[in-house]
Amino acid sequence: MEMKEMTYKDAIKLAMSEEMRKDENIIFIGEDIGLYGGAFGVSVGMFEEFGEERVRDTPISEAVIAGAAAGAAATGLRPICEMMFGDFITIAMDNLVNQAAKMRYMFGGKAKVPMTMRLPFGSGTGAAAQHTQSLEAWLCHVPGLKVVSASTPAEAKGLLKAAIRDDNPVCFIEHKLLYKMKGEVPVDDEYIVPLGVSDVKREGTDVTIVSYGTMLYRVLEAAEAVAKEGISVEVIDPRTLYPMDTATIIESVKKTGRAIVVHEACKTGGLGGEIAAAISESEAFDFLDAPVLRLGGLDTPIPYNRNLEAAAIPTVDKIKDAIYKVMNR
């Protein structure tokens, strides 16, 4: 497969651009995505390539961005929306949750709502409580939505293309700290990472850790560190948070007998609980040698001060401690 090195951000742009070249019904709407190129520069150049009809700057009106996307999707277009910060989805929640997500069901199956909602989530930017959240669990809780989280540049391209081609509303989570990450990305414009398939990011035999987004890299770092001490960690990235491929996770736990879930989102009500429960309800329960642990963010808003912000989410040391705990060391 021919590869090219590029940033996560450019991989997202590439996915959108390739799909827009193939399908005239795709339009891209959001705040400052046009001439300005997006708050994080994701769409730089797209306005020039596709023009103002297809790359549409909106007013600062999140509710109508999501609602118009739902209406346009139900009437034949395939809109991609960008929320400048994922936190702003809160303003568009009715349009996404009560409208887009439920339209097909309420139309007796006679409508489809092929829209993609891109959501930059996550902390680490010193942006404080309203520009740093990780709200994926809210979205996974809504029947009718699919929720995707990309952790590498290649997956950002492949998963986003799958999301855009999906006939359902898909929330596509991007972690802001990953935008500048570089990686090898397949050049093929038909390269797709299918939704609903977990990926084993590191093979191991002693502990299964499920993680995604930037936390995945802390988990991999912790796994590398404990490997030197003879602990073999298997790391699984679900990639699609709903519908999640839990089968891969369950198979892994049957092998390792220990499981930890690590995410940046607040621990209470986070996906960690859902994944832990899925493991406990499965045949993997009989293989467990330790309780399933959850590592999540503190149940606080993300604080502004850098030291406080850093302490609000799981660290490599905390992940290592969790590994020692399930290993009884």
Partner: peptide, 18 residues
């Protein structure tokens, strides 16, 4: 939902115009 139709209508209008 009171007020939900306004944004959906805008979307349908957008599709027709586009």
């Amino acid at each position: 939902i009171v007020g939900a139709g306004h944004t959906i209508a805008v979307g349908a209008g957008l599709a027709a115009q586009y």
